[in-house]
Design a protein around this nucleic acid. Structure first.
Lengths: 130, 130
DNA sequence: TATAAAATCAGTAATCATTATCGATTTTAT
DNA sequence: ATAAAATCGATAATGATTACTGATTTTATA
């Protein structure tokens, strides 16, 4: 009962699901506004935060100073192109044992980890060498 | 010749070397000011950025919205306590092969990666169970 | 179906970290 | 000693995000 339906939240979630890139709150705002012109930026932020708190989306902090959001909550890692800033999903073998590796000499509890990879995406590789 | 000596930069670097935690620009500012009362916050930011660009220190973006700085530039990973926010150096086996794992199915160039581990530090573990 | 409590909203102001600007000062090669 | 260039302190500007507020919407219950 603490969480009520909201059309705005649904539209935000639906939009995010259509995207394979990892849009920022502002980009979500600009896009959702086309379908829902009165929506406020604050509403977008509030719902993105709420959705990520209940686990329906993921918040990505890739280190560029802006939060990105991902509707794909399945475990996967990301690559960030140092040239164009694009964030790309990585399909790679499970590396969860790095958590066990970290736990070995650590007094405390490790619950999760995040791994980000940096370099040049395919596009920028080609661009820069030609 | 492009880089001239600056007393302020030296003091900032020296202070950072005395710390094993990973202070923010503001904390560096507050501490350095005791020895150097006229220093400006902008100068602290400028020199922390400069020092990390020339590789004398490392900038850490752990996801709490504030940049942290580390005078230890040797390769190592960090643990962030979800409860108290403390950032702790991890002594762990090398896990650089996760980069090779990531490269396998990726078209592009991977130059580096970052790995952060989250959970409860020893202190908070004890605090919360008692 | 009517109603009322609580969640959510739109709009806007406030906050917070960081960066940019600018005239004055300091460094350093000559 | 000097002059070009880097750096400084002070402060304004920026940009992302959060907080506030009175109005609107949702929803459980009568």
């Amino acid at each position: 009962m603490a969480l009520k339906y909201s059309r705005q939240r649904e539209v935000i979630k639906d939009f995010l699901c259509t995207r394979k890139d990892h849009p920022t709150a502002d980009i979500v705002y600009m896009n959702v506004r086309q379908e829902y012109p009165n929506i406020s930026l604050g509403t977008v932020y509030r719902n993105l935060t709420l959705l990520s708190e209940i686990g329906e989306i993921r918040r990505l902090r890739v280190g560029d100073g802006v939060d990105h959001f991902d509707a794909d909550t399945s475990p996967h890692h990301h690559f960030i192109c140092s040239h164009c800033g694009r964030i790309i999903d990585l399909k790679m073998e499970n590396i969860d044992y790095i958590q066990e590796t970290a736990e070995k000499d650590f007094n405390g509890r490790i619950d999760s980890y995040s791994a980000y990879f940096f370099g040049l995406c395919e596009n920028c590789c080609n661009l820069l060498q030609s």
